[in-house]
Design a protein around this nucleic acid. Structure first.
Lengths: 205, 205, 205, 205
DNA sequence: AATGAATGAGTATTCATTCAT
DNA sequence: CATGAATGAATACTCATTCAT
């Protein structure tokens, strides 16, 4: 009776631990998080944690890897498979994605990258290759497609996908530092995207 | 040999120490920086450091205070005293300021705020009050002035000074995490500011 | 070589550590005792010591608690259960107890109380409640019983049990400060107790 | 005008410093007292303090020496020069002396001896030679005189002057540890001295 | 596989002592 | 003489990591 439950448990362990680690890192940052706490959060002994992750650093890298990739994959796939117009996509799914960012687990990872990046060059590289580069690439693809289809004109904006990512990163940072009592980041994101699209569409002739 | 072991230079010490601390924090982050290292960098004994700063935390706060305020003060004063048109100011002094940001000491402090903010709420508050709030206020004032003078039209953009700050923060973060091999942040800043101004000036009739 | 580096002996550790701490405190006093030394004496790592005692101070308190209480309990119980006459008890078990005091672990604790008391008011209170008050109370009870039984007359002496404790404390202090080459404290204790009993029994009619 | 005042000042410096040190030691004990504090209390710079006392330890020894000797000298001289009967002296000047002890500066020195004695054998020796030995000797002399004059009978008590010192030391210790809320030490001292004298005078034949 | 007792290197902080002024 | 800035050795405490059970 109890067997199958334990069986299943074993499979999930690593994920449960990285989830606990993410929560712990989110609360206290990497350096101030004790491995003990992560283990306790995961309902696991310290020894077992070390069975899955050789060091605290490896655990950290695992956290970054396992929580960001799926998110970015989803975005990219939706761009690739979508049959919306570029504008529709930007005002629809992309805006939705952008709005959810601040406050999501990924935002925590931004904090970790900012804080710990300099000490983990390989992780930075990984993050660049798998998250930033691919994310920017996807938006670039979206813009390129818009230009091809005649929706957008080709200009400085259509060549800098970072302009679309910018407000998201900014909002994430703001939320992280100042919490919710700061500025209206949602409106900021909307305004920026609207501004960009308006410009890409050019003066209505 | 030539250097006496004791040197009395009461006046200069605090600044030398905060400068050294900034450099150390910049390299390793707050938690990973050893007080010993800061002292060594400053060419000072650990004991003396503790004579001026009661704790590592206080040293950290001092660093934030002494390096950011002057910078932001300069910007604000130049806005207040400038007799340029708003556009001229944005394309001139402000753009210059924005370009210098990534790689400057302030950029390091952004990293510290992101990483350590959650553990130093009073510092975050201080930063908000003295840096962010005043900085945004100054730009707001500049935009308002532009509207009053008829240079700009009143719209969503003229009400969100953060749109101007956004690319700077974004560039800072990018440089911090990915170094120089990432994206062309200068061009990004320019494009964004140009975009905003163009929009504020409305369709050329 | 023969000793494994890790030994799991959870049960015994706290006692071993407090014993080592008592010895160390006895030798150097509280302030001058390094936690490192206590750990070494106990054949234990510093980390483990801190697993059982959160701070050096808590270790100190534990020492006081665990070495004095049993001693005083024994005395009190023997008073309560004894069926000797009061005189017999005082000249027998009590005198024995008094003689053993100087040089025993408790004597060291007196030193700690004198030296560290002012900085640990709660510990002083604890010591008063659990040791001094109860000890004096027990002797008071013994004297009261003697009066009731007609062995002793009621007088200033029968009301001040401290007169019996006095020579013990004095002897302890003397031994602590001056070692054995000072005065004959055993004889002092005997003389005092004899003197008190003689007086309590009144003039032989 | 100001010259003579400074002149005088210089002479008194060491005493002012030892007085300040006594006060500081009294409050916090030897180990916990910072040289800085002593200097501040004495209204003197740290450097000057070190001009008079080579080390903290030497300062400590100076404190012990300079505050106890005068006290004990006074007692001894009054014994030597007194023309009272031994009983009168014991019930008069000696009792007065004994009563004043707890709470006086000397009581603090007892604490210091108990706490720091083990680490300063030479100081203990000094204390024994100059204070304890001479003090006990003086009382011994007083008792011997009483026996010679036929006031007292020769017995175990007349040979153990410590019996007279005992309640004083005990009272001092008690006050030091438990403050004033403990037991009536004055009455204890009186009772003990009365008891001893009564016994020395023997049964009224 | 799982536990948590045990380890020890690493770090912030204090304070007696020195010495340039 | 007098100052107090400057030094650095000493020490309590933490926490990633190991390993007996």
């Amino acid at each position: 009776m109890s067997q199958p439950r334990f069986q299943r448990r074993k499979e999930d362990r690593p994920q449960e631990i990285t989830a606990a680690a993410l929560a712990a890192f989110a609360k206290n940052g990497y350096a101030a998080t004790r491995v003990d706490d992560v283990a306790k959060r995961a309902g696991v002994s310290k020894g077992l944690l070390y069975l899955y992750f050789k060091t605290k650093e490896e655990l950290f890298k695992s956290v970054v890897r396992s929580f960001v990739i799926p998110r970015i994959d989803t975005l990219i796939r939706s761009i690739e498979t979508s049959d919306m117009s570029s504008e529709e996509f930007l005002r629809g799914p992309f805006l939705e994605f952008a709005r959810k960012m601040p406050g999501s687990p990924i935002s925590v990872i931004v904090r970790l990258m900012v804080a710990e990046g300099p000490k983990h060059p390989d992780l930075v590289q990984f993050y660049w290759d798998n998250v930033v580069s691919r994310g920017l690439g996807a938006i670039d693809e979206l813009l390129r497609r818009g230009v091809q289809r005649g929706e957008f004109r080709q200009c400085a904006i259509s060549e800098q996908p970072a302009l679309f990512v910018m407000p998201v990163v900014f909002a994430v940072i703001f939320k992280l530092i100042f919490g919710r009592q700061s500025i209206d980041t949602e409106r900021l994101i909307e305004t920026q995207i609207d501004l960009l699209i308006t410009h890409l569409q050019g003066p209505a002739t």
